[in-house]
Amino acid sequence: MTIANTGPLAPVATHRRRPYGLLLVATPVLLVAWLVIWPIISAVIQTAFVTTADGGSAVSLETYSFFFSDGYSLSNLSMTLWTTGVCAALLLVVCLPIALYLRFSDSKVAAYVQGLAIFPMFVPSIILSFAFIRVLGPNGTVDLLLNSVGLPHIRSPYLTPWGPVIGLVWDNIPLTVLILLSGLGNVSNQSVEAARDVGAGKFALLWHIILPRISNSILVAISFAVLGIFSAFTLPYILGPAAPEMMGPFMQRTFRELLESKTAITQAVVTFGFCIVFGLFYVRSVAKNRAA
């Protein structure tokens, strides 16, 4: 007896349709409602209304107009946008060749390369930050090596905008490679061989056969990276400059050090706004994938 899989979840025998299923899923669902959905709604409401003198409330975009007129906030935002853009571009430039190599190679070296590419997933970003400082920081290993061969010190990326960029790219390599690799799995060997048979060179192959097939995976990988990088905290907090700072450390400082929770939440809603397209696209892709 085969049942066509129509929905994202395979249908179950319907004579078991009793509400106690709801009971079993209630706790995690309520947790999501309380700690994901409600905070987002509440954040928007909280920042869009002000309490008036007579105790009522009125729509006011005061906190947002402050954010978008404050030079410091804006420079933080533009630095975040810059970092996210540069990271996304770098990730593609780094990961696409790795994924292509892994997809079309079966040598023993490939297994090693794959292992290395996935390895950062098992290195917590806090250890990465420490390693970054020890290697690229002032008097770090790179300086030692340069010094030993009589070359001048590097201009260390530590505490400059490039610090978080390097760290975030390093951190995001595994999932980007995995997502691209999974997309490349949809490109069959036959289609590649057929294209070569009709005379496609390597570049034509990449441009006309492979890239069109994996464009969705590329967008998913970018969306995932953007969502992670836009509000990254640990790496920019440790490796980045004190001012201007990325949105993550900025929100943290506003919330915990300046104790201006409303301002911090406004900043959070701004990050939501900038990422909404990527977020929706990402969720849609995951849901579609799951449904397939």
């Binding site: 994202p8 979840l9 995690p28 669902v29 999501v32 409602a33 700690l35 994901v36 959905i37 409600w38 905070p39 987002i40 509440s42 954040a43 909280q46 969502l227 992670g228 836009f230 509000s231 990254a232 905290f233 949105m247 993550g248 929100m251 943290q252 919330f255 929770s261 911090a264 939440i265 900043q267 959070a268 809603v269 990050t271 939501f272 990422c275 909404i276 977020g279 929706l280 990402y282 969720v283 995951v286 849901a287 799951r290």
Partner: peptide
Amino acid sequence: FFSFLAGHAFPKFGLLVAIAGI
């Protein structure tokens, strides 16, 4: 089932700040 994806549609630290507000 898909509601669990909601948390992943938003930048994580922004969401954390919103939760911290609660």
